[in-house]
Nucleic acid binder design. Sequence first.
DNA 1: CAATCGCATCGTACATTGTACGAGTCAATC
DNA 2: GATTGACTCGTACAATGTACGATGCGATTG
Lengths: 232, 232
Amino acid sequence: MAAKGGGAQGKRLQRRAGSVPSMQQAGNEPALSIERIVATAVELLDAEGVDGLKMRRLADRLGAGAMSLYWHVDNKEEVFDLALDSVLEYRGPPQGIEAADWRGAIFHMLEDWRASMLSHPWSASLLPRRALGPNILGRLELLGRILSGAGVAEADLNGAIWSLWNYVIGATITRTNFDLSDDDMAAAQQRLAHLSEKYPTIERARLLLDNDWDGAFRKGLDFLLDGLVPRQ
Amino acid sequence: MAAKGGGAQGKRLQRRAGSVPSMQQAGNEPALSIERIVATAVELLDAEGVDGLKMRRLADRLGAGAMSLYWHVDNKEEVFDLALDSVLEYRGPPQGIEAADWRGAIFHMLEDWRASMLSHPWSASLLPRRALGPNILGRLELLGRILSGAGVAEADLNGAIWSLWNYVIGATITRTNFDLSDDDMAAAQQRLAHLSEKYPTIERARLLLDNDWDGAFRKGLDFLLDGLVPRQ
DNA sequence: CAATCGCATCGTACATTGTACGAGTCAATC
DNA sequence: GATTGACTCGTACAATGTACGATGCGATTG
């Protein structure tokens, strides 16, 4: 259900090299293209959230008719897939990091990953139902390469990759889930207070309110790495 | 957006103590109730997945009219919330575990959690957008209590709770995401093979295919716990 | 130049689905 | 018997994804 066919759909072959890239509306909108569609979808998702993405609205923003999108895209699902993956592109570590610093490299990539998703909160809620796009795969590949280079045995590699991935995914989803609505959160903690007898510990710890998410993320990541790739 | 009002909606007060619990259709369906609605919703979700839950279909299964549900429930969202939380009830550790064995207690609870979600795969994809129900809160409370008892400092408690929660959530979501469709997975790895030059590491590791999910889960959890609550 | 073709756009129409509204039923209470 | 309140449900509507077919336009071919 999650994975797409991925084969050739018969239409939408890459634009032939020689063809003219002109073709504009009488107005002045640039021509439709998957890139433009995806970019606009991301904008819309940022602005209106997952439920705000409607094909008609997306088309409006593009200055196109609703059905025009379907020449470039099979269905709405694919728009989600593409938007998600597009937001997860990784541009690599900054120059400051030396090649030998595998721990720094992993940290940077995973924190960047988390940051990317946090700045597009809808991405977290999409993740569970989406397939692996090239950017996600690229990150996994990079992760595997670094870990492998850091001395993780071949047999432990998959487990290590998934553990890290899991941790990042979970942390991000939780965070977006609880960050989106400060007032809602307060309301929830309010309800908790009302049930103090049932949840004294998390009530006392103000679990839903006081949280150094970033610090907790880094700390847990540290512990995981220590386990997966013992410091020499 | 995620949290519900939770106040009194004016209708749906708990059934008065003295009232008669009869009220059956001319047929023989037992009367509607939130419990029955939620239970049936879970059945439907198990059978048809997230997209398979339609109010009409749910009503059909209950032998009721579609609109009858709306007396017990505000909207479809609430059905999701209730179904999710209902699936996450925790019945506590088996008798075998002694009170002193905090590590065993945590392991049991978290593995049970993961198992519950895996046996209702839709729950993982719902989690990101749902509020905290009593059962989820109960688990968080228990987690906090155990960790606290195990010697985690008050200041580190929230971080520890969230790290564990994150890990479980992430592991579960990933797992359901990749488990649902063996053939899809094979297809994905196939596509990968085609792109061997781009993803040699994960291709070689057969990241998408060969995986001891359960083992990897336990291992990562071990490492996390070692960090969060050092073995004495 | 005319005919043809493939890419690309879009208007119309329809099926599906959540749910607002208000009428209807039945038992308990006054 | 009248009233009330808990509960059920049929009808209707708005929103939305998308199937289908018409249309335009540039390039190619005759």
